[in-house]
């Protein structure tokens, strides 16, 4: 049987509400994924810890605060340090294209800026997790 994709959705930083993250979480659930909802105002440490304990395939972060250049690399570093370098780190928010490129160069997955659709994000996670699972020989 095809195993459902497990994904952690969280919103780091101190800004705003979690409507965006909740919409993403619901879309991923509707696409058949098991979504661990991590809530808002989380620190990179808490996010990495949740991702490790839940053995997720992917972490999706919603970042609107402009702090993406520090938050994404920080979470990535903590995941790697915990032995969870296989986890796909992705997300979206108000992130300029140049920053997206720079973050991808640091091992972060594709990021979705303004104008991207939920469908794009969902399909990307499905395809990328599928690819990683196949490469690991654990479909």
């Amino acid at each position: 049987m095809e195993q459902p994709i497990r994904v952690l959705i969280a919103k780091p930083g101190l800004d705003g509400h979690d409507r965006g993250a909740k919409v993403v979480a619901a879309a991923m659930r509707d696409a058949g994924m098991e979504v661990i909802y991590g809530g808002l105002h989380q620190t990179p440490e808490i996010i990495a810890e949740m991702a490790v304990q839940e053995d997720v395939d992917a972490v999706g972060l919603s970042i609107l605060s402009g702090a993406h250049m520090t938050l994404f690399p920080e979470v990535k570093k903590l995941l790697d340090a915990a032995g969870a370098d296989h986890v796909l780190l992705t997300g979206g928010g108000i992130i300029p294209p140049d920053d997206i490129d720079a973050l991808q160069a640091k091992g972060v997955g594709r990021l979705f800026g303004p104008g991207s659709t939920l469908v794009e994000l969902v399909e990307y996670v499905q395809a990328e997790v599928g690819r990683r699972r196949a490469a690991a020989g654990s479909a």
Partner: peptide
């Protein structure tokens, strides 16, 4: 699990925030 989509939204951790770290 949702019987319709096979997906699930697991939110219990949000209630256990003080244990996170």
């Amino acid at each position: 699990t949702s019987p319709f989509t096979g997906g699930a939204l697991l939110g219990d951790r949000v209630r256990m925030g003080e244990l996170s770290l």
